[in-house]
Design a binder for these strands. Structure first.
Lengths: 203, 203
DNA sequence: GCAGTTATGGACTGGGCAGTCCAGAACGAA
DNA sequence: TTCGTTCTGGACTGCCCAGTCCATAACTGC
């Protein structure tokens, strides 16, 4: 069966993901990726195709993992309200971790992806959709378990929380953990307000 | 006095800013900048120094202009509450405009700036600070004119609105204007809630 | 119209980039 | 041990990039 591989593709992908996450797609060079993964050029090209293919694989994998983690976390608490609190606490907590790249790969790339790059846009859009859906589901659960007032519209608030999450990840990128904390405190309070939909908002 | 310049530096900077805004620093080439500004290579290097210097000038100029526009807008309405509404309506409106680059240059660069790039970080941090200050001031004005409940803490809510703004600009980048609208509606409602600070939030 | 000064166009350079390719290494099978 | 297969290291390529440089153009003052 020929010479066996000297690396595990999955591990290499994880390392490559960290590089893209830290530096962004454009600023990342193949040398960066070779160093981080420890692969030889041939192995990397043989396994992943090209820098761009590798990036798309990294981005997709990152999004899938994050979505799954998020769904699990959101279902792991007694009430939906607690689950949402826990989720945002985790986001803040992650921003504090030393070894972890700052911000969120998907959010970062959303900010720098080219207008005509439909492939990256599709992955990012999918990520946006699935996070919004996860937020909407947990809010609905909150309606059922009584932890979130019924007047809180699930779609609207899901979009709100989603946008807020992206803002938080940008703040994480700038290392503004204090700002993140204050933001989360205010945002969570909005979930407990009953009259959020009653007033004729500005649209 | 020698041969006169055939261009206006200010205009060239405006054009260059649009390119960086659209493509991001890394993805922008000198050819892009030469084409957009119409300058010759010598003139561009003579006037702005280097690609990086030009970028820093573009970013600073963008931030200054945006901050000034924001302050003027926030002071142009009868009440602070109306001013904040108008500001976010403008952000959504801008996201709709066809000819305008998507999102916000400062927000985009915040997402892709390198960890060791202290110069860009400083400009972005300054922008973050001045926007937060502007939000805090308008909230204080709202306390005075009665349009914002006194329980709404100005610093906390300023940070909240600032983070939200960054999230909105990311959504603009992904062309999700619907999401922006829903987000703004929810966020503005939070400003009218009196008990936002009374509850022991998650921190 | 001449001298001095400044701006311009474009050829040029060196470096770094993504990606290719092949000789040989490292196995499994018989 | 030998053969077939698969993987690996690294030399190599060609391209595009930011930045330099200089001959010449375009002007002002005298």
């Amino acid at each position: 069966m020929g010479r066996p591989k000297e690396f595990i593709a999955e591990d290499a992908l994880t390392q490559a993901t960290r590089v893209f996450w830290t530096k962004g797609y454009e600023a990342t060079t193949m040398v960066d990726l070779l160093t981080a993964t420890g692969l030889s050029k041939s192995s990397l090209y043989e396994t992943f195709g090209s820098k761009r293919d590798l990036f798309l694989a990294a981005l997709s994998g990152y999004c899938d993992e994050r979505t799954q983690m998020m769904r699990e976390l959101l279902q792991s608490r007694a009430t939906a309200r607690e689950a949402i609190t826990a989720f945002f606490a985790l986001i803040v907590e992650q921003a504090r971790q030393e070894g972890r790249p700052f911000g969120c790969l998907s959010c970062n790339e959303a900010a720098q992806m080219e207008a005509h790059d439909t492939e990256v846009q599709r992955v990012v859009a999918r990520d946006l959709d699935s996070m919004e859906a996860a937020f909407a589901e947990v809010i609905d659960r909150g309606h059922a378990d009584g932890s979130i007032p019924p007047q809180v519209d699930s779609r609207r608030h899901a979009r709100f929380l989603n946008t807020l999450h992206h803002g938080l990840q940008l703040m994480a990128r700038t290392r503004s953990v204090d700002r993140m904390e204050d933001t989360v405190a205010v945002a969570l309070a909005a979930l407990d307000q009953a009259d959020g939909l009653a007033r004729p908002a500005s649209q």
